[in-house]
Amino acid sequence: MALRAVGYGLPLAVLMAWVLARCRFPGRSVLNALVHLPLVLPPVVTGWLLLILFGVRGPVGALLYDWFGVRLVFTTAGAALACGVMVFPVMVRSVRLSLEAADPGLEQAARTLGAGRIDRFFNVTLPLASPGVLVGAIVAYATALGEFGAVITFAANIPGQTQTLPLAIYAALQAPGGESRAAELSLVAFALALVGLLAGEWASRRLNAWFGR
Protein backbone atom coordinates (compact mmCIF):
# COMPACT_ATOMS: atom_id res chain seq x y z
CA MET A 1 0.00 0.00 0.00
CA ALA A 2 2.73 2.44 0.98
CA LEU A 3 4.66 1.14 -2.01
CA ARG A 4 1.78 1.97 -4.28
CA ALA A 5 1.41 5.39 -2.70
CA VAL A 6 5.05 6.17 -3.45
CA GLY A 7 5.16 4.36 -6.79
CA TYR A 8 2.28 6.30 -8.28
CA GLY A 9 3.00 9.48 -6.41
CA LEU A 10 6.68 9.83 -7.26
CA PRO A 11 6.48 10.53 -11.00
CA LEU A 12 3.74 13.05 -10.30
CA ALA A 13 5.82 14.58 -7.54
CA VAL A 14 8.84 14.87 -9.84
CA LEU A 15 6.71 16.56 -12.46
CA MET A 16 5.18 18.91 -9.90
CA ALA A 17 8.59 19.69 -8.42
CA TRP A 18 9.94 20.47 -11.87
CA VAL A 19 7.00 22.76 -12.60
CA LEU A 20 7.45 24.55 -9.29
CA ALA A 21 11.22 24.80 -9.60
CA ARG A 22 11.57 25.76 -13.25
CA CYS A 23 8.38 27.36 -14.52
CA ARG A 24 7.29 30.88 -13.80
CA PHE A 25 3.58 31.42 -14.23
CA PRO A 26 0.77 33.26 -12.44
CA GLY A 27 -0.69 31.17 -9.66
CA ARG A 28 2.56 29.38 -8.97
CA SER A 29 2.48 30.24 -5.29
CA VAL A 30 -1.15 29.12 -5.06
CA LEU A 31 -0.22 25.79 -6.63
CA ASN A 32 2.71 25.53 -4.25
CA ALA A 33 0.39 26.15 -1.29
CA LEU A 34 -2.11 23.55 -2.58
CA VAL A 35 0.62 20.94 -2.89
CA HIS A 36 1.77 21.58 0.64
CA LEU A 37 -1.72 21.75 2.10
CA PRO A 38 -1.84 18.11 3.28
CA LEU A 39 1.29 18.79 5.31
CA VAL A 40 -0.42 21.50 7.34
CA LEU A 41 -4.07 20.52 7.26
CA PRO A 42 -5.32 18.13 9.96
CA PRO A 43 -5.08 14.72 8.23
CA VAL A 44 -8.69 14.01 9.13
CA VAL A 45 -9.72 17.00 7.08
CA THR A 46 -7.67 15.76 4.13
CA GLY A 47 -9.28 12.35 4.46
CA TRP A 48 -12.70 13.90 4.61
CA LEU A 49 -12.00 16.01 1.50
CA LEU A 50 -10.89 12.83 -0.28
CA LEU A 51 -14.11 11.19 0.84
CA ILE A 52 -16.11 14.01 -0.69
CA LEU A 53 -14.12 13.93 -3.95
CA PHE A 54 -13.55 10.22 -4.38
CA GLY A 55 -16.54 8.81 -2.52
CA VAL A 56 -18.84 6.64 -4.63
CA ARG A 57 -21.11 9.64 -4.93
CA GLY A 58 -18.33 12.23 -5.12
CA PRO A 59 -17.58 13.99 -8.44
CA VAL A 60 -14.44 11.99 -9.19
CA GLY A 61 -15.37 8.81 -7.34
CA ALA A 62 -18.69 8.52 -9.16
CA LEU A 63 -16.94 8.72 -12.54
CA LEU A 64 -14.38 6.11 -11.52
CA TYR A 65 -17.10 3.80 -10.25
CA ASP A 66 -19.42 4.20 -13.23
CA TRP A 67 -16.78 3.94 -15.95
CA PHE A 68 -14.21 1.61 -14.53
CA GLY A 69 -16.02 0.01 -11.65
CA VAL A 70 -13.28 1.25 -9.35
CA ARG A 71 -14.25 1.89 -5.79
CA LEU A 72 -11.66 3.67 -3.68
CA VAL A 73 -13.44 4.22 -0.43
CA PHE A 74 -12.68 1.58 2.19
CA THR A 75 -10.28 -0.31 -0.11
CA THR A 76 -6.54 -0.85 -0.19
CA ALA A 77 -6.30 1.34 -3.29
CA GLY A 78 -8.12 4.06 -1.37
CA ALA A 79 -5.68 3.77 1.51
CA ALA A 80 -2.84 4.07 -0.98
CA LEU A 81 -4.47 7.17 -2.42
CA ALA A 82 -4.84 8.73 1.01
CA CYS A 83 -1.22 7.92 1.86
CA GLY A 84 -0.09 9.22 -1.53
CA VAL A 85 -1.82 12.54 -1.05
CA MET A 86 -0.41 12.88 2.45
CA VAL A 87 3.19 12.15 1.49
CA PHE A 88 3.03 14.02 -1.82
CA PRO A 89 4.38 17.28 -0.31
CA VAL A 90 7.27 15.38 1.29
CA MET A 91 8.33 14.07 -2.11
CA VAL A 92 7.76 17.33 -3.98
CA ARG A 93 9.81 19.22 -1.43
CA SER A 94 12.74 16.87 -1.56
CA VAL A 95 12.79 16.62 -5.35
CA ARG A 96 12.36 20.34 -5.78
CA LEU A 97 15.26 21.17 -3.49
CA SER A 98 17.59 18.94 -5.46
CA LEU A 99 16.28 20.25 -8.77
CA GLU A 100 17.03 23.76 -7.63
CA ALA A 101 20.48 22.69 -6.52
CA ALA A 102 21.24 21.13 -9.94
CA ASP A 103 23.49 23.39 -12.00
CA PRO A 104 21.46 24.99 -14.83
CA GLY A 105 24.76 25.42 -16.65
CA LEU A 106 24.80 21.69 -17.29
CA GLU A 107 21.42 21.91 -18.97
CA GLN A 108 22.76 24.72 -21.14
CA ALA A 109 25.69 22.52 -22.06
CA ALA A 110 23.26 19.73 -22.96
CA ARG A 111 21.29 22.11 -25.14
CA THR A 112 24.35 23.15 -27.13
CA LEU A 113 25.07 19.44 -27.60
CA GLY A 114 21.72 18.95 -29.27
CA ALA A 115 19.52 17.70 -26.44
CA GLY A 116 15.91 18.87 -26.58
CA ARG A 117 13.71 19.59 -23.59
CA ILE A 118 12.52 16.07 -22.72
CA ASP A 119 15.86 14.50 -23.59
CA ARG A 120 17.54 17.00 -21.27
CA PHE A 121 15.13 16.32 -18.47
CA PHE A 122 15.62 12.55 -18.47
CA ASN A 123 19.33 12.47 -19.24
CA VAL A 124 20.67 15.45 -17.34
CA THR A 125 18.25 17.09 -14.93
CA LEU A 126 16.70 13.98 -13.43
CA PRO A 127 19.97 12.09 -12.88
CA LEU A 128 21.42 15.21 -11.24
CA ALA A 129 18.39 15.43 -8.98
CA SER A 130 18.38 11.69 -8.28
CA PRO A 131 19.67 12.01 -4.71
CA GLY A 132 16.66 14.16 -3.85
CA VAL A 133 14.28 11.86 -5.68
CA LEU A 134 15.63 8.85 -3.80
CA VAL A 135 15.55 10.51 -0.40
CA GLY A 136 12.05 11.79 -1.11
CA ALA A 137 10.87 8.32 -2.05
CA ILE A 138 12.38 6.62 0.98
CA VAL A 139 11.17 9.18 3.49
CA ALA A 140 7.78 9.23 1.82
CA TYR A 141 7.57 5.45 2.04
CA ALA A 142 8.37 5.51 5.73
CA THR A 143 5.88 8.31 6.28
CA ALA A 144 3.19 6.51 4.31
CA LEU A 145 3.55 3.45 6.54
CA GLY A 146 2.67 5.66 9.47
CA GLU A 147 -0.26 7.51 7.96
CA PHE A 148 -3.25 7.63 10.29
CA GLY A 149 -5.85 10.37 10.07
CA ALA A 150 -6.46 10.54 6.34
CA VAL A 151 -6.50 6.76 5.94
CA ILE A 152 -8.93 6.08 8.77
CA THR A 153 -11.26 8.78 7.49
CA PHE A 154 -11.16 7.81 3.84
CA ALA A 155 -10.41 4.09 3.83
CA ALA A 156 -11.32 3.05 7.36
CA ASN A 157 -9.39 0.57 9.44
CA ILE A 158 -9.71 -2.87 7.87
CA PRO A 159 -6.97 -5.27 9.00
CA GLY A 160 -4.96 -6.60 6.08
CA GLN A 161 -6.48 -4.11 3.67
CA THR A 162 -6.36 -0.54 4.80
CA GLN A 163 -4.69 -0.89 8.15
CA THR A 164 -1.49 1.11 8.47
CA LEU A 165 0.90 0.61 11.37
CA PRO A 166 -0.47 3.34 13.62
CA LEU A 167 -4.00 2.15 12.89
CA ALA A 168 -3.00 -1.31 14.04
CA ILE A 169 -1.37 0.14 17.12
CA TYR A 170 -4.44 2.18 17.86
CA ALA A 171 -6.67 -0.86 17.40
CA ALA A 172 -4.43 -2.89 19.66
CA LEU A 173 -4.61 -0.25 22.36
CA GLN A 174 -8.39 -0.23 22.17
CA ALA A 175 -8.58 -3.98 22.71
CA PRO A 176 -8.25 -5.25 26.27
CA GLY A 177 -4.76 -6.60 26.95
CA GLY A 178 -3.38 -5.25 23.68
CA GLU A 179 -0.56 -3.22 25.25
CA SER A 180 2.15 -5.71 24.47
CA ARG A 181 0.94 -6.00 20.87
CA ALA A 182 0.95 -2.20 20.66
CA ALA A 183 4.45 -2.06 22.08
CA GLU A 184 5.68 -4.57 19.50
CA LEU A 185 4.12 -2.63 16.66
CA SER A 186 5.49 0.63 18.01
CA LEU A 187 8.91 -0.89 18.01
CA VAL A 188 8.43 -1.90 14.39
CA ALA A 189 7.30 1.65 13.54
CA PHE A 190 10.31 3.06 15.35
CA ALA A 191 12.69 0.75 13.49
CA LEU A 192 11.10 1.47 10.12
CA ALA A 193 11.29 5.23 10.64
CA LEU A 194 14.90 5.06 11.70
CA VAL A 195 15.90 2.71 8.88
CA GLY A 196 14.05 4.91 6.39
CA LEU A 197 15.82 8.06 7.47
CA LEU A 198 19.24 6.42 7.61
CA ALA A 199 18.81 4.69 4.27
CA GLY A 200 17.76 7.95 2.64
CA GLU A 201 20.73 9.75 4.07
CA TRP A 202 23.13 6.99 3.08
CA ALA A 203 21.79 6.69 -0.46
CA SER A 204 21.99 10.40 -1.12
CA ARG A 205 25.50 10.54 0.26
CA ARG A 206 26.57 7.69 -2.00
CA LEU A 207 25.03 9.32 -5.06
CA ASN A 208 26.59 12.67 -4.32
CA ALA A 209 29.99 11.06 -3.88
CA TRP A 210 29.47 9.34 -7.22
CA PHE A 211 28.94 12.79 -8.76
CA GLY A 212 32.00 14.13 -6.99
CA ARG A 213 29.99 16.62 -4.94
Partner: peptide, 20 residues
Amino acid sequence: LPPERRRVGLVFQDARLFPH
Protein backbone atom coordinates in the same frame (compact mmCIF):
# COMPACT_ATOMS: atom_id res chain seq x y z
CA LEU B 1 16.88 28.35 -33.94
CA PRO B 2 17.03 27.00 -30.38
CA PRO B 3 20.54 26.01 -29.19
CA GLU B 4 19.82 22.30 -29.56
CA ARG B 5 19.22 22.74 -33.27
CA ARG B 6 22.10 25.10 -34.09
CA ARG B 7 24.95 22.60 -34.12
CA VAL B 8 27.18 25.22 -32.58
CA GLY B 9 29.77 23.72 -30.25
CA LEU B 10 30.42 25.66 -27.08
CA VAL B 11 33.30 25.14 -24.68
CA PHE B 12 32.54 26.85 -21.40
CA GLN B 13 35.11 28.41 -19.12
CA ASP B 14 34.14 25.94 -16.39
CA ALA B 15 34.03 22.84 -18.69
CA ARG B 16 30.55 21.81 -17.44
CA LEU B 17 31.07 18.10 -17.81
CA PHE B 18 28.14 15.95 -16.73
CA PRO B 19 29.07 14.60 -13.29
CA HIS B 20 26.85 11.54 -13.60
